[in-house]
Nucleic acid binder design. Structure first.
Lengths: 221, 221
DNA sequence: CTTTTATTCAAGTAATTTATTGAATAGTTG
DNA sequence: CAACTATTCAATAAATTACTTGAATAAAAG
């Protein structure tokens, strides 16, 4: 049993997962799936890809083991195959951010205020939520909020931020989060709140990382 | 500043790292690099690839930020750009093993004894080493052992195992490790030792994971 | 049973990737 | 400086990937 091929076969299998991560559009689809289950055409809409193309990418993801699908009536719903996929994406992000100058440049030019925002670590937020010291804002679309959110968080999509300003306790600190560590929505929300003189911070990562860390999650209402 | 392209640009960058992981030969090179620094032709030899091909793969890995290089005389030495790359490989492995049936099958058919070996977790080994309760065997080639190993470990390449048998305290438990969680050397060593009636176990992962976890490491001698 | 909707399939094209080969470069050694 | 060694570069062929287009399914609704 020449085990000489074993190593190569095994690495070839690992490479299947690597291949799934080798395309930007697939990574974007994975980030949407990390927010919760989505149908093919919902994913096609948010990603801006054609339906056929989206379907093909999703099938590749399924073959690589990163997602699972479920048919319900006309629709096919895709979801991540486990929380470990969120962890894989997180580590991929971190490695890229640490070792690729282009990523550092992109983050700097689009998320300029990054350093000034003093992001709040997950555990710290959890404590402050328990002690009722902060108002937590979920700035994602309502569907994603409904599929799961940080306990006690209020869903305020970015374009409704101004309308909700008056309902917020101006004395209490605000922490905003969205899809992930590089999601601009939370950055933008914090920037706008600070313009109004409100003490606002950003959660270090987004909801998927919160959930993957095993922290408590609220659904729907 | 239409930030609409930001997300796509960012994911395209992350995909550069994914691309680096999308080829089995590159993953094998990364595993060798996780044992320590290596020159191009050393990597070409161990991987069985042509020198030119190896060089090109290494350049791709460098462009993706996963490895760094250093020229010394005629030789160019490549190394991982950080311990986070080891973590990325670990998570990739774990995800593939958990969600790809083909991987489970491969592991089962080549590492059949896997379940019987009762792998020892890192922290547990560290304790037992401190209390001098175990003999630790590093079954990798001498060069890799020299570049770093578990403190107190004895370097016994697999083909010298029989010769060293008599030097081992038959009463004391043995823990063997090699390059990583799927490296056959340690599996093989444990199997042979057990045939001789010696109590032997396998370290859960290999040396790179031990080092990446921040546990103590000995060099050379 | 026809129409509509959501998804997949199949075919085709352009672009990219992998590995091979032989030449080019840079540093070392006799 | 001529010969040698380690690495990279450049050109190529074969295979794979990404996306588009239009047709094929399959379930639901009229």
């Amino acid at each position: 049993m020449s085990s000489g091929h074993f190593k190569q076969d095994l690495f070839a299998q690992f490479a299947r997962v690597g291949k799934a991560l080798s395309n930007g559009n697939r990574l974007e689809l994975l980030e949407f799936l990390a927010q919760g289950e989505h149908s093919v055409d919902a994913l096609a809409k948010v990603s801006g890809l054609s339906v056929a193309n989206t379907s093909q990418h999703l099938q590749q993801l399924r073959q690589s083991g990163l997602v699972l699908s479920r048919k319900e009536g006309l629709k096919v719903h895709y979801r991540l195959s486990g929380e470990d996929v969120v962890e894989l994406m997180s580590v991929l992000r971190r490695v890229a951010e640490r070792h690729l100058a282009d990523v550092q440049q992109l983050v700097q030019s689009y998320l300029t205020v990054k350093d000034e925002l003093e992001p709040v670590p997950r555990d710290e937020l959890l404590e402050r939520v328990r002690d009722d010291l902060v108002t937590v804002l979920d700035v994602r679309p309502p569907e994603e909020y409904a599929a799961g959110h940080v306990p006690g968080a209020i869903n305020v999509p970015l374009d409704e931020l101004e309308a909700h300003l008056e309902q917020l306790d101006p004395g209490q600190e605000i922490v905003a989060y969205c899809r992930g560590p590089h999601c601009i929505l939370a950055f933008e929300a914090v920037a706008r709140l600070r313009e109004k003189g409100i003490a606002a911070h950003r959660l270090e990562d987004g909801f998927p990382e919160w959930k993957a860390a095993g922290l408590p999650v609220d659904m729907a209402g």
